[in-house]
Amino acid sequence: MTLFPLLDTLFPAGHDASVTRQVIAGTAHTAIGPVALLGTVDAAAISHDIALRLASQVLDLVDQHPGRPLIFLVDTQGQALARAQELLCLNGSLAHLARCVDLARRRGHVTLGLITGEAVSGGFLSFGLMADRVYALQSAQVRVMDLKAMARVTKIPHERLVALAASSPTFAPGAENYHRMGAIEALWDTPSSELLEQALAQLRASQPGGDNRLQQGRLRGGRQEAAAIVAAVLAA
């Protein structure tokens, strides 16, 4: 589903979203009032420029619209792969974006991520995964690396990885695996304004700020080790 039909579906009361060089900006109307829309389109490769434009939007919202909910529309193939980007410390600009989202959360903005296309590695870490809760369209592609590339790098036969992926959510691409492991709240088969309003209401009613992914991953059976290890460290 392309961006604008999706936004028209999610926000029947209206929105003014626009896209400039792959970055989304805008405001939408919902039952709980205005919400800010920001994110990327066309599987953007996150560069310094994109990270800094997203960060600037977040800082402006914290200044100008205290407490307004932020909706992150996630579609990224990962970070930009170029020497010029690394020369200027691309990890630093992505960290800056993550810190801006963190600031917004601490200042009382709830943050909701929706994966509309792809969600990959560094681009996903610095923005979408920083949201309080992340949802995904059923068609979303979430991964670190596809299984063929993974087979090449790890020198484990591709067929073996495919077979193991059927029983383990730990390494194979797929939004469903991230749901089982606690990082995605729910997959939306048919996106609707009701689903979005419900997700926003739940988020506002819960205790935003807390990272609940360890517990969710354990409850859903996708991450059996992590929560127990954190508890063991606290008890050691």
Binding site: D102, S121, M145, I156, Y178, M181, R213
Partner: peptide, 26 residues
């Protein structure tokens, strides 16, 4: 970075580490 043999678990763990570092500093 991410351990590819546990790619999804590693990516989510890194996100949790990011949040935990910021919580510690805060």
């Amino acid at each position: 970075g991410v351990r590819l043999h546990e790619a999804n678990a590693g990516l989510i763990a890194l996100s949790e580490i990011m949040r935990a570092v910021l919580d510690t500093r805060a």
